[in-house]
Design a protein around this nucleic acid. Structure first.
Lengths: 226, 226
DNA sequence: TCAATAGTGTCTGTTAGACATTATGGA
DNA sequence: TCCATAATGTCTAACAGACACTATTGA
């Protein structure tokens, strides 16, 4: 049995789950790595190995820039994963999810490629967990952080915004209710531009511009998953 | 400048934030560590150093048992912290929050002690962050996971349950609304026991027993923090 | 008896969702 | 013209919160 050198196994990796909207669903950025032994090619979530003395936040930014080619519009830590096997044989991996706005999803080289979540190649088990928890983390923050807006361009139609929410939540929303709640929260402001898309009536473009309202706290919810 | 040996700095710590209800607020378990150099005493969040080859989840369980003396009733990972200084000089720390039910909060030895959150001794900056995010993580999961029930004994009164929610949320709740929502969610079932506490009318005891109802999803909320 | 807490019924304003209708462009 | 999409108004059932009230114990 050949083993990695001992010093290497003591490091950790920072893995990046970069997500972007694509074809009415989410796509994730994967990196091609060829196995040095059997020359097989496989796709992995991009990762970067820690360096002694470098701060976690800096490693994360380095990892995101290396994979997406730009500083992250929005990113957050998902957690630490150390149980299932990692393609780099790391004992511990810290995962960051980064959101890339619609239309900004480019690739650095042939070694990177966006994959629809419905058409993923097989991944190492630890990276499957990472991906699943990352999507869940984004979805769970949907009501507290403007993640949906981070996936949209600077101006967007209300239908696009609603589709983004539906995409992230995995369920359909009611149009009139959605817009009423949006208006009540004063989260968007209209521009004086319209966009015609195919057949129907053109839609007005909006931009994200939260008014600092005091949000009315409401009663407890008991939406237990179990 | 004296430095830790290089091998040690490459390890990581698993830090435990053990929480229990106490005097109408939360208390956290701290450990006394005396500094080898200047013999000063300071309180820290208990931590355990990783061992090569040991799985993260196992280290976490080991860390929780070492500090609380028992396997965790409920625990979850909060995240990885690597920015501010750690009392053990670790580069990276993985934090787990563990909930200890009311009345089960014992101490292993004189080296451990429960502190009310309002009466904390000064902590290292990284551990301040850990504590703050741990409490926030518990609060944010309140509607999805039965964390409030994990802090209560097996049977409890509805007033105790409501007080636990108020404690975790940091705000008062409306009694009738709370009970209506609870009944609608079918989360508790009554026992045939009552408890008399001081003056007023005795309260019926309930136990946690979620009926597998299909929870009615509702519209989006826009409760942005920013 | 009074004080204190448990538990419930009623009312009202708010809101989510259903439905319908108007508006406006392209085919 | 027909069709597709945007945008909005109306109705209803559900719900949160306020308030009041009854119930039941200890002091």
């Amino acid at each position: 049995m050949s083993r990695e050198p001992r010093g290497k196994r003591q490091q950790y990796t920072v893995d990046v789950v970069a997500l972007t909207p694509r074809d009415d669903q989410l796509a994730v950025l994967l990196e091609r790595r060829s196995d040095s032994k059997d020359k097989s090619v496989r796709w992995v979530l991009p990762w970067t190995v820690s360096r002694t003395g470098e701060i976690l936040a800096d490693i994360a930014e380095r990892a995101i820039i290396r994979s997406t080619g730009a500083a992250p519009i929005w990113s957050t830590q998902v957690g630490a994963f150390g149980d299932a096997p990692h393609p780099g044989d790391a004992e511990l991996s810290i995962v960051y999810v980064a959101l890339v706005p619609m239309g900004h999803a480019t690739v650095q080289s042939d070694d990177f490629q966006w994959f629809l979540l419905s058409e993923l190649p097989p991944l190492a088990e630890r990276q499957n967990q990472m991906l699943q928890e990352s999507v869940g983390a984004v979805r769970d923050r949907l009501d507290l952080y403007p993640v949906a807006f981070k996936l949209l361009p600077a101006t967007f139609t209300l239908s696009e915004l609603q589709h983004m929410y539906e995409l992230l939540l995995g369920r359909r929303l009611h149009k009139a209710s959605f817009r009423r709640a949006l208006a009540a929260a004063a989260l968007v402001e209209p521009t004086d531009e319209w966009r015609s898309e195919g057949r129907g009536r053109p839609a007005q473009l909006y931009r994200f511009g939260p008014k600092k309202r005091r949000r009315g706290r409401r009663g407890v919810r008991f939406d237990l998953l179990a």
